[in-house]
């Protein structure tokens, strides 16, 4: 088990009073709480701060923590023999657990023992983000979810146990959709309910399509002569390619709607696909192509910047 210096985490002296500990915690919580801070590292930092506060605000836990002695942060250590954290005959293996698991379990096993031994304790909620492809979101998919949770084994010892299960993501999900899997979080104890798993759906970037709610957008490159003369072009969709008739005189940035070729909605409707035109020229034109463009330049009276004058 690795040692964590809870005093150092909160930035207080080992002799700090309860009020000083509370004040330091609140200051750091304002800075790092995931519901307040936008710092991506904030959540992990707040977890550490919360863990330190949960132990140091409780007189008995703090005393048991102090008894562990002082070690450099991150150093492997084992609690001393007859450590007061092992109460009620409860022995810990100290394998596969960390300090936070130990002190979370300490509440159940020690100072609330008589009152709380049989109290139902709900399992912890977890939150995961899973990334899926647009194709999988379009037709629905199974995802495998894995995370580790602290659990008691049959000998009553606390261990970190990997949880792996499959969940079906139904079609119709949107990028950023949140879902809840009831009872798939940490195990409850003493008859307490199992925690829930909050699942955030995130779409992988697609090489062709961009997603806006249930609509899809695709860039549609056109040659100058397709734009000038009009053309029927093949446009890929998630349901196979469709022919799109581009009228003569198309401009860059024009949007053509292809109905019901977007993402499915929960009510059996479907979003649309928008093809956005881009007029492009070859980066490596042949001599003959260049000659023809030159000829066009010589005879054309078209001035696209007329309105500048």
């Amino acid at each position: 088990m690795k040692f964590k210096d809870y005093y150092e985490i909160l930035g207080v002296a080992r002799t700090a009073s309860s009020d000083e500990i509370k004040k330091a915690y609140r200051k750091l919580a304002h800075q790092y709480h995931p519901d307040v801070s936008k710092d991506p590292a904030g959540e992990a930092k707040f977890k550490e701060v919360g863990e330190a506060y949960a132990t140091l605000k409780d007189k008995e836990k703090r005393a048991a923590y102090d008894e562990l002695g002082r070690h450099p942060s991150g150093q492997e250590f084992r609690p001393p023999p007859n450590w007061s954290g092992q109460q009620n005959g409860q022995a810990y293996s100290f394998d596969d657990i960390d300090l936070s698991d130990l002190f979370a379990s300490f509440t159940k096993g020690s100072h609330h023992a008589q009152q709380g031994r049989n109290m139902p304790i709900p399992g912890q909620d977890y939150e995961l983000t899973t990334q899926i492809s647009l194709e999988d979101a379009y037709q629905g998919t199974m995802v495998e979810l894995s995370f580790t949770v602290p659990e008691y084994d049959s000998q009553g010892q606390l261990k970190r146990v990997p949880h792996t299960f499959k969940a079906r993501i139904p079609k119709g999900v949107t990028n950023g959709q949140k879902m809840l899997l009831r009872g798939k979080g940490g195990k409850g104890s003493n008859g307490g309910k199992d925690g829930n798993l909050y699942l955030n759906i995130s779409f992988l970037t697609h090489r062709l399509f961009r997603v806006v709610n249930h609509d899809l957008y695709i860039d549609l490159p056109l040659t100058p002569w397709e734009a000038a003369l009009g053309a029927t072009v093949k446009v890929p969709t998630l349901q196979g390619a469709v022919n799109l008739k581009v009228p003569a005189g198309a401009k860059s940035g024009q949007k053509f709607r292809i109905g019901k070729r977007g993402m499915p909605k929960h009510n059996h409707e479907q979003g649309d696909l928008y093809a956005v035109t881009q007029i492009v020229v070859s980066a490596n034109p042949t001599e003959q192509e260049l000659a023809l463009f030159k000829q066009l330049a010589d005879i054309s009276i078209f001035n696209p910047r007329e309105h500048f004058d």
Binding site: V161, F165, K166, R168, Q177
Partner: peptide, 17 residues
């Protein structure tokens, strides 16, 4: 470490929207 058996359960999935 042994993995728990893979469960396939999706009846309890709740959409949050």
């Amino acid at each position: 470490m042994m993995k728990n058996a893979i469960n396939i359960e999706h009846s309890e999935l709740i959409w949050l929207d």
